[in-house]
Design a protein around this nucleic acid. Structure first.
Lengths: 262, 262
DNA sequence: CAGTCTGTCCCGATTATCGGGACGCCTGTC
DNA sequence: GACAGGCGTCCCGATAATCGGGACAGACTG
């Protein structure tokens, strides 16, 4: 029994909160029985029984024919698949990006990770209003993860195994404007993960500063990142710190809107 | 305004039915206003207003900051993505396959389509109890769509554009045990689509009969099919007809469990 | 065949939903 | 600047739901 879930169900006495708790329970496990789910949620058996059966009547859940256990039904399956299909990172991120970009008044880029290619591509950008500003260039082009804060903002927050596999496949020292020993890259990634964001100077483009933070989807996977970029003649340590706070906050907001729970 | 949806919402007076109707409305459109949604569903404005705001309080929906419009919120996004992620065709199909295979007592195979490769692979099978029986062979191997009822059960039901692209890429005549003019293949596919299932004789394996019907996911896309196979010394027209009925019914059940609405 | 697990069901008290209508707000338009 | 028509919001008495403790029947097990 998960105390957090039980608390959440008990804290809000509104009838709907129970429905949400019951349906959300099926994100943890495929099948639930009445008593089982009732103790898991800390709710009376009769209440769970009623909700479960009403949900079956609505097609949200389905009762297994023999045992009295319940699974996800047609209506909920449809809702889940169609909504998940419509859920689009770009449109969810856009308003958050505009606010964040305006707050610092520097260019902010949205990049998405492709686990298959082990690369990323920028898919959207909000440019700063400065006459001299960071411009990503053509969107939807693939780039490697190991150079620049855009890539490292993803790489640093991938699961250890995945990150190791990518780093281990690189030559040692890692090529780039300034060749870096693999061990040094690993240390940088570790620090970035602890800090929650990445800062880089002139790795991808000379004279550019980059600050990035990861975006996660509802399953917790890192799916991309947000990246601030500006020319280093407008740079100072305080600005880097502010950019870090803003980009972490913005990335967290996008993750939350996508259903991620920290 | 969609009369079907409105009818569905009005038909069931249970409070939950309204909640389901409201949430399902977000599968049609990204944003809804109170009045807008109320007339769409044929419900009183006050009811929709209450449901919408309570849903926001639960995190299921989110209110756009400026306008009073509503979108999918964190909790619903999470529910959708995680459930869609957990939803597994194989485990959903298995019980249906076992019943259907037992009813005809012949081997029944589940095949999944890969739109990227434009091929399919068998991922599960329930074998018949006959000593001489159809056996698919190793699972998870890719095969082309244009030969045998397993592939045609998918190909025949793909959208016209997609089907045309695949057929047009084939040589004319189409190679196989019995070379077929492309026009003849197109006619076969058209007939199969009208009938709802595919019947083939010895196309993939000599001496084998195959009968298949398509499986669709919640978005209506054809994602694979179910295929009966048996040796032709156990065949007769009546059996083919029975197999057609059974496989169409089974495929429809799997599609429904995945959230497909005809 | 008792012990223990399961799901099911009943019923009075509680509490939410229900929905028609009034209200305030904003945005156009004449 | 008045007015119409769109919007979301809110109120409140009547209705109908949820609520939950507890009793019950069946299935399984040792």
């Amino acid at each position: 029994m998960d105390p957090a879930t039980a608390t959440r169900a008990a804290a809000d006495t509104a009838p709907m909160a129970r429905w949400v708790a019951v349906l959300e329970a099926f994100t943890d496990r495929d099948e639930w029985g009445v008593r089982d789910l009732a103790t898991h949620l800390g709710l009376p058996r009769s209440a769970v029984h009623r909700i479960l059966h009403e949900a079956v009547r609505q097609g949200l859940l389905a009762a297994a024919v023999t045992t009295g256990r319940f699974r996800v039904g047609p209506a909920l399956a449809r809702l889940a698949v169609v909504l998940a299909d419509r859920l689009d990172v770009r449109s969810v991120a856009r308003p958050v990006m505009e606010r964040a970009a305006a707050e610092l008044d520097e260019t902010l880029v949205l990049a998405l990770y492709s686990p298959g290619r082990r690369q990323f591509a920028a898919i959207d950008a909000v440019e700063s209003s400065h006459p001299i500003r960071y411009i990503w260039g053509p969107l939807r082009q693939w780039s490697d993860l190991h150079t620049g804060s855009s890539g490292k903002g993803i790489l640093a927050f991938l699961p250890d195994e995945e990150q190791d596999a990518i780093v281990a496949a690189l030559p040692d020292p890692v090529p780039g404007p300034v060749p870096t020993p693999r061990a040094r890259l690993r240390a940088e990634l570790r620090d970035a993960r602890a800090r929650g964001h990445v800062v880089s100077h002139g790795e991808r483009f000379p004279g550019a500063v980059g600050v990035s933070a990861p975006i996660r989807d509802a399953t917790g996977r890192v799916i991309g990142d947000l990246v601030f970029g500006w020319p280093d003649n407008r740079n100072d340590p305080d600005k880097e710190a502010r950019a870090g706070r803003i980009v972490m906050d913005a990335a967290a907001r996008v993750s939350a809107a996508l259903g991620y729970r920290p």
